[in-house]
Design a binder for these strands. Sequence first.
RNA 1: GCGAGAGUGGCGGAAUUGGUAGACGCGCAGGACUUAGGAUCCUGUGCCGCAAGGCGUGUGGGUUCGAGUCCCACCUUUCGCACCA
Length: 835
Amino acid sequence: MTAPDDSMTGPIEEPLGYDPSVVEARWRQRWADLGTHKTDLAHGKKPFYALMMFPYPSAEGLHVGNLFAFTGSDIFARFQRLQGHTVFEPLGYDAFGIHSENFALKVGKHPMELIPSNIRNFRRQLDRAGLMVDWSRSLDTTDPEYYKWTQWVFLQLYKRGLAYKKAAAVNWCPSCKTVLANEQVEGGACERCGATVEQRFLEQWFFKISEFSPRLLENLERLDWSETTKQAQRNWIGRSEGARLRFRVLDPFVDAGSSTVAVTTEMTMADAPEIEVFTTRPDTIFGATYLVLAPEHPLVSVITTPQQQAIVDEYRVRSANQDLITRKTTKEKTGEFTGAYAMNPATCALIPIWVADYVLMEYGTGAIMAVPGHDERDFEFATKFDLPIVRVVAGEGQNAHTPFAGAAFVGDGTLVNSQQFEALPVSSAKRVLTEWLEAMHAGKAVTNYRLHDWCISRQRYWGPPIPIIYCDSCGTVPVPEDQLPVVLPNIPDFKPDDSGVSPLARHEEWYRVPCPTCGAKARRETDVSDTFLDSAWYFLRYPSVGRNDVAFDAETTKRWLPVTTYIGGNEHAVLHLLYSRFITMVLHDMGLLDFEEPFTKFRAHGLIIREGAKMSKSKGNVVNPDDYIDQWGADAFRTYLMFLGPFEEGGDFRDAGISGVKRFLDRLWASVRDCSTAGAPDVEVMRKLAATIKKVGEDTPSLSYNTAIAAMMEYMNTLRRGERTAHRAEVEPVVQLVAPFAPHIAAELWEMLGHIESVFDSQWPTYDATLLVSDTIDLIVQVGGKTRGKLVVAKSITQDQALAAATADPAIGKFITGEPKKVIFVPGRLLNVVV
RNA sequence: GCGAGAGUGGCGGAAUUGGUAGACGCGCAGGACUUAGGAUCCUGUGCCGCAAGGCGUGUGGGUUCGAGUCCCACCUUUCGCACCA
């Protein structure tokens, strides 16, 4: 390389000759023309599927958070390409759903008009970011060619008996006018608009994901995922071991006046209903002093005595009408006595049955045995309603008579007041008592899961219609696969109303269809499906985009899936990732996929914060990437985003920091431009280069982008120290190292160095490992544990030699004031002299 | 309340198995080149101190020759979950 004539180009105006806007525009065009980012799915060697979570194309455009995630994923993908993999990096749009619909309503535009223009704008912004995306295989969930297959997925689940319809109490958002999944309710308020959620009773389609709970949980152990993500899924699946116990309900008249039940009441007991409870503490059965049923429990109406009927009914109505927010967040206990009693199978005592809303119908059996002595909630309830509290566990220093100091004792201990089980430790009592109760046919050990079925119905417009037809004679009929897609009609009145039915239900011309089976008059399902269904299978579609005869091509899928690396936000740790795993499992069980886990490796990226807060429009701290790219170039912006913190933790965005990264690129540019081939490269510089190649090669695949960049900056400092001119061999490999981070400048410099093929098809640089081995080491010398200096010594130095050298060194020797009492010598590292 | 993570200069952040705390960058200070500098380059920059030296990784203990790193208690904070029996 020869330096351009500075007097001609004007060093003051353009000191380095690096103009990102020119370089980046040029390479965008080149890459598009040459198809550099198109993946040869059929023939490419060492397939590597680098997936990033696709965005919802909002009207506001791409924000820095999106770009941060995409850039991190893109760097990983580009690095893998430099490692010799054939990398497939697709990107598409998750454009259905309530976000789009609400925005469309707000601005008074139709989503069918809005979404395409949003997508165009996103695409424009994404193109500038320099992503290695294969746009020939993009997808858009609102495209009938895509959602045809989303509907197909629904039909597969329906065929397997995994999709069913039931009437259920659902969360109703009065503001969004739609049903929300439990997962979309945060603390009783609508996740989206914050409005107070109410209960409604509607017919809904559900997927039986709960049947897969054990598998979804167990498979986690084998996945290479961020630990926090796995933990979030474990918590959500919520496995707990315990027992189901049966309590016989007794006729209060027959047993009136007796505190225990004699064998003579057996006849009454035979026809009496039983209440089944789930407990994780069967060991505390002797302390169960009452039962509680959820207000919705079907047995409430059966067992309630005539005297209590009115008051219990009133309580049930009240809790049914109560919005879920108050019910779930108010800790104040309420409840009513049903007038009925049950027999505690351990003590044979009669215990009252209450109804209270602190027991939830959707968990366990909807009924509990209350052990107020050893459960905080039961203690609170028992205290409020003056129910007996019995101690059956004694902790350290406690006995059967130790009073409760205003709180339940939930700690570990041994059983008391428990007849033949006295003094048994809680740990073994769980098993022993369960076996005992099993022998009495009063219960059995069970594992319970918190995960409940996935409600996929949405009474909204902007989603794929659920492909079901209702016929008076044939019943529920799935739309035949060859009649897919069920196209979402373009209707002007897509606004939901208070009726609780989808806007599609107002369009008779759409929902009136002949039954596919018998031809009689029938009607379509007018609900659309949850957006999470669109995204629960999209990764299967990318490699098969363009195949309109199948959802995913078997051979291509076999070659490219499961996804090698998936990068996305931890906000989808539970829902999206769990649903994707579930759908994959189902398709696997049907023999359509040969794997049952879709994402071999998943890493969650962090969040970009600014001015101490997560970027959001409401906080007014959003950054428009366009402005930064205009000013600094995409390469500097990408590199800066990755430099501001560990990728998996996110970082603090400040305008000030970007200049340092830009300077780094400027210096790299200048070094390449000015480099010479005269003479030999400097050994010390080459040593540093070897260390840098090693470090960047280790940090990049572990997503430690910030330290990889720091290492490259450090090397540039070494390379240019004292304004020296770089030798070509000293700087050429840096172009390859920086390529995943700053692809445009790397491509330009690589070409400047005379290469014809793309830098991304060059191999990752190698280094001479022998350069990293040195004969001398820095020996740290401490005196009395305090560091006093370091000595450059031969690697093979012995303890005695080191001690002599340390004593001889004036700066260190002066601290060695007497005979060494003790000498610690770590060969090759450190000498500590204790005097 | 439960679960997981995090507290390091003026700021963002680095620190293999415990072994020179503060890499890299921002900012700041000084200098060079300049008509100019908000460009570029060089040098310096944890705190106190003229220095020798001392003190320093949220707080208080502990283990160790030696602790940002390990142990115990506590404080602060972020993110999940939240009456899940």
